[in-house]
Amino acid sequence: MNVSMTVNGRSVTADVDPPTLLTEFLRDHLGLTGTHVGCDTGQCGSCTIHLDGRAVKACSVLAAQAEGARVVTIEGLADGNGDLHPMQAAFREEHGLQCGFCTPGMVMAAVDLVNTYPNASDTTIRENLEGNICRCTGYENIVRALKSGAAGMGDQGNG
């Protein structure tokens, strides 16, 4: 079957089997391997992408369900001029990662979290990062990075 969607601003169409997950479509068909597959059971959040502007777990969505949708992956988050997105920059500055495996999902979730809950408290941030698991940092620096990234996104006046 054919699926068509916009991925990082580019229109893509591909012939896929119906059970193809969005993770498989992004990684195997489009070569966008920044979307990581950690648990493949909808728990760890490493595969978080934006589907029509909302953070979702790409391992829990069929490619077919994204028909006609606007998808943004970690590769498409920055503006393309060589500058990191403010949230990516904040994760680097605040040491919001160690091994980096969970980071693409963390960053994508963080951007949606800021858009959904502007000026979120630490409690709101931690509750809404429930779906992203990091086994290195202990989350302290991630929460700090998220708040710093939120400030950076505000300065830029966008999400």
């Binding site: 959040g45 953070a55 777990k57 979730a109 959904t116 809404n128 990062l129 429930e130 779906g131």
Partner: peptide
């Protein structure tokens, strides 16, 4: 329910 991403879908 679930987590933020699950609640989005």
């Amino acid at each position: 329910i679930g987590d933020h991403q699950v609640r989005n879908v």
